[in-house]
Each structure stands twice: as structure tokens, then as C-alpha cells.
């Protein structure tokens, strides 16, 4: 089943001195349960593509479908709600809420979703356990290492039971061991829970583990490789 489909997706930034084509006619399909890395040099359009797929930015032309719902042109208030229920985000800088503990950060998404309160804490603890941080549930982000914060961010991304998770350079700020730990967890979640994961990355460690690698150059897909792993 196709979770993401794009049709001739283009994005041009016109507010710069010279208009910049960030994406040019990108046609892409991501199936359920895929573990995909989007790679390419800086400025190739990786982050722009992820922003489009996450409904954070609107394309200049083209369409995006999540399952069968077209999100291009959707009103912001509907889009926020759509993101909340369908898309998980993992950011390069973790972006946890600094004043909330690990478990509160994970529960936060469920609170926004009006998840039943009696089940919320149980699910948040389960998610923290899945990322190996059950013992850090009541710790605030500044007391956690970078790798631990990113694992909390993964747990948070999964809290809403999203259709897919978008991760923008998730290992860029992590040391080797933390990056491997994070990748192991994400791979396990992908295999065991059939969670669809889409990364933008420069990191060879991520690329080596991905089952599909899409290469972008100057806003266009130049290579789309599938691997059996």
C-alpha cells in the first residue's frame, strides 16, 4: 500500500535574489513499512522534500497524497490536525520541549490528540521502553545525552501512531555509538512494528542500513535504489 505519493512536485524559492528551484518535478511513491533514505549533497532539496511531505511547506506546483488524501492546498488548521494524526517528526536538533520530562514529551502528542488519559501514561512508558529509556521517564531533556534526547524524540514521533515518520538528519548531531543505537532502534521498530520511516541524511551509517536510497541532485531524483537487507 502506498503511504506517500507525489506527482510532479516542484518548489521554487522566489523570495531570494535569484529564483532557486529546490525541487523539480519529483515523482515519488513510498510504500507502507519502507525504510528509506533520501540522500544528496547540500542544497539538493532533501529538507525541502521532507518539509513538503510533512505538510510544513506548500509546493509551487504538483500534488502530494498521504494515503488517498491530498494535502497540497489544504488549510493550515486542517493540515495541523492532519500532521498530528498521520505524521511523526524527528528533527536534527531533537527539539524536545525543555520544560517537560521525557514521559511528558512523549505524552504531549497524545494530549494534543485527546488520547484517553488512563491509557496515555501506559503507552508513553511502553514507547520509552522500546527506545531503551524506561529509567529516564522523569528526567528533563537537559539532563539527557544527545543520543538519549533523540531516542525520546523517536518515541514522541511514534506516540500518535503515525502513518509514517519523517526524520531530518536524525544522526547528524550524534556520536558514532549513539547514532548506531538510534539506528538499531529505528530498524527494529521498522521491522517489528512495520513503521514507515523516511530519512534525509548525509550519514553513511544510515545509508548503509536503508532498504531504499533515493538520491537527489539539484532538486531532481537521479537514482532510486532498492536493497534486500
Amino acid at each position: 500500500m502506498k503511504v506517500i505519493r507525489t506527482h510532479d512536485l516542484s518548489k521554487t524559492y522566489n523570495h531570494l535574489v535569484v529564483p532557486v528551484k529546490a525541487l523539480v518535478n519529483v515523482n515519488l511513491e513510498i510504500s507502507e513499512g519502507e525504510f528509506t533514505a533520501i540522500v544528496g549533497p547540500s542544497g539538493s532539496g532533501k529538507t525541502t522534500l521532507l518539509n513538503m511531505l510533512g505538510g510544513l511547506d506548500q509546493p509551487t506546483s504538483g500534488k502530494i497524497f498521504i494515503d488517498d488524501t491530498e494535502i497540497t492546498g489544504m488549510k493550515e488548521s486542517r493540515l495541523i490536525d492532519f500532521r498530528l494524526r498521520n505524521i511523526g517528526f524527528v528533527f536534527q536538533s531533537y527539539n524536545l520541549i525543555p520544560v517537560l520530562t521525557a514521559i511528558e514529551n512523549v505524552s504531549f502528542i497524545m494530549l494534543l490528540q485527546n488520547y484517553p488519559k488512563d491509557k496515555m501514561e501506559k503507552r508513553a512508558r511502553e514507547l520509552l521502553e522500546q527506545v531503551g529509556l524506561a529509567d529516564k521517564a522523569d528526567v528533563r531533556p537537559q539532563k539527557l545525552s544527545g543520543g538519549q534526547q533523540q531516542r525520546v524524540a523517536v518515541a514522541r514521533a511514534l506516540a500518535s501512531n503515525p502513518r509514517f515518520v519523517l526524520a531530518d538528519e536524525p544522526t547528524a548531531n550524534l556520536d558514532t555509538q549513539s547514532a548506531f543505537n538510534l539506528l538499531d532502534i529505528m530498524l527494529r521498530l521498522n521491522r517489528e512494528e512495520n513503521i514507515t520511516l523516511l530519512f534525509s541524511t548525509h550519514d553513511q551509517r544510515v545509508i548503509d542500513r536503508a532498504r531504499r536510497v533515493i538520491t537527489l541532485v539539484d532538486g531532481s531524483i537521479v537514482e532510486d535504489q532498492h536493497f534486500e537487507k
Binding site: I80, F89, N95, I97, P98, L112
Partner: peptide, 16 residues
Amino acid sequence: NAEFAMLISLGMKRRR
């Protein structure tokens, strides 16, 4: 600023 944008990205409504 970045935190506010992140919260909106995650699905927090602007009015909240």
C-alpha cells in the same frame, strides 16, 4: 522561535 515552530509542526494548534 524555533521551539514554537516545532510545536506547531508537531501538531499543536497556534491558538493553544
